[in-house]
């Protein structure tokens, strides 16, 4: 009977309620800070008229960032965002080098050495009716 007195019980209840209100408050704070206004970051980029990119040319599009290639097979694009932690890679000889932690990719975006483990992903390129090119992420 003495093992768990009335006083212990009240103390425990008190602690439990305090902890609970603390957690509720923290949960509320997280929800408050977690509000997202505008969703949808830009995923499509108008990169101008297709004539600006002649056959057999490779062009860096710094705003995307991506590299746009025009071959006999048509237009293709590859992301230039390092798959390690998101720095923009730089052209380095045939391939690409990330200045942040030194990942190297070959000209097709395959990893030559890490720390990155994933290749640079290809991007979708669309040619609109009015001759405008559109590059979209994903």
């Amino acid at each position: 009977m003495d093992i768990f007195s009335r006083r212990d019980f009240l103390k425990l209840t008190n602690r439990a309620l305090l902890t609970l209100s603390g957690l509720l408050g923290l949960g509320g704070l997280l929800r408050f800070l977690g509000y997202q206004g505008e969703e949808a970051p830009a995923t499509e980029f108008d990169v101008g008229l297709s004539e600006n990119y002649p056959l057999n040319s490779t062009t860096i599009l710094p705003d995307v960032p991506a590299v746009l290639e025009h071959t006999a097979a048509g237009f293709s694009a590859m992301s230039l965002t390092c798959t390690h932690l998101g720095c923009t890679v730089e052209q380095d000889g045939e391939g690409y080098l990330c200045p942040c932690h030194g990942s190297r990719y070959d000209s097709d975006g395959q990893v030559e050495h890490g720390p990155a483990t994933e290749p640079l992903p290809p991007l979708k390129v669309e040619l609109e009716a009015d001759g405008e090119l559109k590059v979209s992420l994903s």
Binding site: V64, P65, T81, P99, C100
Partner: peptide, 10 residues
């Protein structure tokens, strides 16, 4: 200028 542009200090 652009958060993706290659510039600045890494």
């Amino acid at each position: 200028t652009e958060l993706t542009a290659i510039s600045g200090d890494v």
